[in-house]
């Protein structure tokens, strides 16, 4: 086993820290998410490690529960975007012809509309529930995954071993899942890290604009929004979730880079 480079170690540490916090939230949060336990914007103390928020709730507890929501939504959206995006992308590449044309032009059409504006329009006419939020994010992101999956699969699809499978008479399901998928996995895994980060940023943006997670439920973008007025008074409460978003994004990125380097021969990796 080769040594893990420091950057990847840093990434692994923070990524696992945030994910553990998200999973264990009910057991490790000192207070409940909605309970008002003190004054508005109390400074850091032994009772409230990183102070209280704009209406006097414990900020650490909000952060832990908020992380749970943010990470859950991002993970679910990434899962949806990956399954739909890659399966459709592979299908388009394998079938080709007009099926590929129709699907690819449809994806181009959706991608030509800025994602954020598209999501804002959809979410403002539909009831904002967790399910709808995840579906909208997942399906919009699926267009990006589709493009990558299709490009990778088109390359693999012309290899002789795929032709050999076609000559054998194998069906499309076998070709997609047994011949193409295993060989497309490493670029897709690396892309998964990036898509997860975009999902985190996206849900945070939506919540900040008031169309994401609705109060009193917490998520990191929402916490920034709730506490942003404090910045005028020199209160740093809004910076805590901002820093959390930034560190999560960077950490996952570092891990994804490391995975890509290890699993592909691109970028001088040893695979």
């Amino acid at each position: 086993m080769t040594r893990i480079p420091p950057a990847a170690l840093f990434g692994l540490f923070f990524t696992s820290l945030y994910f553990l916090m998200a999973i264990l939230a009910p057991w490790i949060a000192p207070y409940s998410m909605t309970e008002i336990v003190g004054d508005v914007w109390e400074p850091w103390s032994a009772d409230h490690w990183i102070g209280t928020d704009n209406i006097g709730r414990d900020l650490l507890s909000r952060m832990i529960y908020g992380g749970r929501t943010t990470i859950f939504i991002a993970t679910a959206a990434t899962f949806i975007s990956f399954t739909t995006g890659s399966i459709l992308g592979f299908t388009a590449a394998v079938i080709g012809g007009w099926v590929d044309q129709v699907m690819s032009r449809f994806v181009d059409l959706i991608m030509s509309i800025p994602t954020l504006i598209f999501a804002l329009v959809v979410l403002s006419v539909m009831p904002v529930t967790l399910t709808i939020l995840i579906l909208v994010m997942g399906l919009l992101d699926a267009t990006r995954v589709y493009r990558l999956a299709r490009a990778v699969a088109v390359d693999i699809n012309v290899m002789d071993f795929v032709e050999a499978a076609k000559l054998r008479g194998e069906g499309r399901i076998w070709i997609i899942f047994r011949e193409i998928l295993p060989n497309a996995l490493s670029p897709l895994v690396a892309e998964m890290g990036l898509r997860f980060i975009f999902a985190v940023l996206f849900v945070s943006t939506l919540s900040f604009l008031g169309l994401g997670v609705q109060p009193p439920n917490a998520d990191w973008g929402g916490i920034v929004k709730e506490n942003k007025d404090g910045i005028i008074y020199g209160i740093a409460a809004a910076l805590v979730p901002a820093v959390a978003i930034a560190t999560l994004a960077i950490s996952v990125n570092l891990v994804a880079d490391w995975v890509l380097n290890r699993t592909t021969s691109l970028k001088g990796g040893r695979g």
Binding site: M159, D160, F161, A164, R178, E179, P182, N183
Partner: peptide
Amino acid sequence: YQMADVAMNPR
């Protein structure tokens, strides 16, 4: 095939 290495799925 001519190129045996691409005629077999590497995985």
